[in-house]
Structures are given as structure tokens and as C-alpha cells.
């Protein structure tokens, strides 16, 4: 009875969780290999830095990254000096000063990433009414996570015969509803990688997805590392507790 019940309950939990996302109409993104998946996953530093470059040169024109601060970039393997330089290359609004005016100054590591638009309305006005969402949590905010993001960025195709694509929209294989307001953002050699890697669409999509996986879960490496230690400890402790339990109950059996 016990095993059957555990089996039923596990199946139920999985069925319920899975079923909640079985919304009709969307194509499931194919699974990809990511360096950060699995028990021992880590972020590939090269991919993170290339991905940051893609974000900075392509995506940042429209998409904010407001939850990330420049100082966080030390987490993708950049040095403190590199981070200071990157921050200083951005212009940040500050103030009011003693005259009561807002003023601009170069960025500091403690500043959050500069937003491309001051507010949602300005963003919509510049993008045909569509709002380019903030990307800090995008990997956690979409069903399919990293696999989905990669699929969308590489999923721009010609619309199948008979499907009408309105003005200003593009056809995408994996975007729910297939019509996306963002034109294909990545083009071959769109970015000249600092580490000289060839910038194919596939490469850039992978790199920027890895970078966004990091912005969404900067604690991932710590989490998995500590997780292994905690689980190992608990398994051993539980084993010891079982032995103690058997010893204490021995006389009653």
C-alpha cells in the first residue's frame, strides 16, 4: 500500500504540474544542452561574456536589464577595472543637484544597468506600440526557459503558405501565436566577438541565452554547489538516524 500510494502521489504531482502548462496552441521548444543544466551545472564564462556583448550591442537598444547592476558583471568573469570601465561608458541620470536640477554623469559599478527608455510609454512609442519587456528574469518568466528563448531567437522563418503576417509583425515558429512584434534581432556576424569566435546566429543565440540565464539566476552556481553538500550531508545523516532508530527499536521487534 505504501509504495502504491507514493507512486500515485508522485505521478499526481508531476501530472498536475505538467498539465498546468499544457496550454493549447504553442509549440514546445526542443531541449538544448546548456552548461548550467544538471546537478553540477556551471556557467561557461566565455559564453557569458560573449552573451553580454550581444546584449550590450544588440538587445540593450530596446530591452532594459533593470535588476542587474554593473558590479554584478564580476560574476561573468570580468575584473573590477573592466567593470568600472563598462559602467563609466554609460551615462546615468542623477540628482537633483544643489540647484535642484537632474544631471547626467558617467556610470559607477553600483549603478543598475541603464534603461533604453525612461518609461513604458516611451518604449511603446518607439516600437510601434509594442513594449520590449525587461530581460533580467526572462529565462524564469517563460515556460521552457532557456530552451524557449533560444528557440524564439533562432525560430524566425518565412510564414507558411496561407498565413497572413500583418505589417510590423514577423513570423516565428516558437512564439505563442507565431506572430511576434520584434523583428529578427540576430543576423550573421551582427556582433564582432571580442574573443574572435565566429558570430553565427546560432552562436549568438546560445551566448545571449546563457547570459540571460545568468541574469535570471546569478546564484545558480552557488546554489548547486551548496546543494550537493547539503544533500550529501542529509543522506548520510538520515542513514545514521535510521541506524539509531533500528538500534533503539531493536528490543521491541
Amino acid at each position: 500500500m505504501r509504495k502504491g500510494l507514493i507512486g500515485i502521489l508522485s505521478a499526481a504531482v508531476l501530472a498536475i504540474s505538467g498539465a498546468a502548462y499544457a496550454a493549447g496552441g504553442s509549440v514546445e521548444a526542443p531541449a538544448q544542452n546548456w552548461s548550467f543544466k544538471g546537478l553540477f551545472g556551471t556557467f561557461d564564462r566565455g559564453a557569458l561574456q560573449r552573451g553580454f556583448q550581444v546584449y550590450d550591442e544588440v538587445c540593450a537598444a530596446c530591452h532594459s536589464l533593470r535588476l542587474v547592476a554593473y558590479r554584478n558583471l564580476m560574476g561573468i568573469g570580468l575584473t573590477e577595472d573592466q567593470v568600472k570601465k563598462i559602467a563609466a561608458s554609460k551615462t546615468v541620470m542623477d540628482g537633483p543637484n544643489d540647484e535642484g536640477e537632474m544631471f547626467e554623469r558617467p556610470g559607477k559599478p553600483s549603478d543598475r544597468f541603464v534603461k533604453p527608455f525612461p518609461n513604458q510609454q516611451a518604449a511603446r512609442a518607439a516600437n510601434n506600440g509594442a513594449f520590449p519587456p525587461d530581460l533580467s528574469l526572462m529565462v524564469k518568466a517563460r515556460v521552457g526557459g532557456a530552451d524557449y528563448l533560444y528557440a524564439v531567437m533562432t525560430g524566425y522563418k518565412d510564414a507558411p503558405k496561407g498565413t497572413e503576417v500583418p505589417e510590423g509583425m514577423s513570423y516565428n515558429q516558437y512564439f505563442p501565436g507565431h506572430l511576434i512584434a520584434m523583428a529578427a534581432p540576430l543576423a550573421e556576424d551582427g556582433v564582432e566577438y571580442a574573443d574572435k569566435t565566429k558570430a553565427t546566429v546560432d552562436q549568438m543565440a546560445r551566448d545571449v541565452t546563457t547570459f540571460l540565464a545568468w541574469t535570471a539566476e546569478p546564484e545558480l552556481e552557488d546554489r548547486k554547489r551548496i546543494g550537493i553538500k547539503v544533500l550529501l550531508f542529509l543522506i548520510i545523516l538520515t542513514g545514521m538516524l535510521y541506524a539509531v532508530k533500528r538500534k533503539i527499536w531493536a528490543d521491541l521487534h
Binding site: 550531508f233 542529509l234 548520510i236 545523516l237 545514521m240 538516524l241 541506524a243 539509531v244 538500534k247
Partner: peptide, 19 residues
Amino acid sequence: RRDFLMLATGAFGAFGVGA
């Protein structure tokens, strides 16, 4: 034997609680 097991388990557990 039993005391050692209990002591070891207790110590292990106490370390876990601290962590």
C-alpha cells in the same frame, strides 16, 4: 557501540543545525 552511534549522529546533526 550504540552510544558511539548516537554520539556520532548527534554530533553530525549538531553540525548540520549550525550550518
